[in-house]
Design a binder for these strands. Structure first.
Lengths: 115, 115
DNA sequence: ACTATATATTCCTCGCTGGGAATGCAATAC
DNA sequence: GTATTGCATTCCCAGCGAGGAATATATAGT
């Protein structure tokens, strides 16, 4: 079991996605900067960041009384790979056409199959 | 605004992810088949499928009193693209190294910077 | 020492949502 | 026609989780 459950449940929350997007713009951000940028108050930002950290979506770097948060590729890649496993669903956009082709092995020289 | 919010919130639920994975194995499934395969009871499956349908993650095909559900690439691709926009985060795996390089333009001939 | 700043944590509350049971509603079977 | 099957919908309830206020903790500044 990959941590996909924890990751996708963490990303299910809108404000947490906003924090991820903010962290994507500015490489690193302190909690205060995220508070100003997100409009949330400080306790909520800290709590959301905690959830994101346990999902390995963000990483922390302590610096004095500041804590610099940055994105962590680990969790992000887990989520990305989970959706990537469904790529075949939309990459075959010829839904009904594909079924037709796969059931008819040789479309052009069809006479060869006849006795 | 893309429907990413609706999609990612729909996928945040574990049982809904199970339904998506089940639909990925069997190309199409009726509600009864999903009930048997998932262990959930019928009303829950119907409700979860409704959420997935409004997120354009599944599509329905009516056939008599049966309803065949299949994956819909629309919502899946939206979610995939949202995570793909973060690809740069994990594709540069040399996190600390990158910082070093970007702050020191000429790594080898360092003496040139000295007075 | 005291004060102020930065962040985390606790407590409480409230709204939302998933789960369960019952019901509604078509469509097939008899 | 009635009965039955397949699915959707409604109702209610319990629990979880996000939000807010207050508090705790630590570090820097004076």
């Amino acid at each position: 079991m990959t941590g996909a459950d924890i990751v996708l449940e963490a990303v299910g929350e809108p404000n947490r996605r906003r924090l991820l997007e903010l962290l994507h713009l500015h490489q690193e951000s302190t909690v205060s900067e995220l508070v100003d940028a997100s409009g949330l108050n400080q306790p909520q930002v800290s709590k959301h960041l905690k959830v994101l950290a346990t999902a390995m979506l963000v990483a922390v770097r302590a610096d004095g009384r500041h804590r610099h948060y940055r994105l962590d590729g680990t969790g992000l890649q887990v989520a990305h790979d989970w959706f990537a496993s469904f790529e075949d669903v939309w990459q075959s956009r010829f839904d009904t056409l594909d079924e037709l082709v796969s059931t008819q092995p040789n479309p052009i020289p069809a006479e060869e199959q006849l006795p």
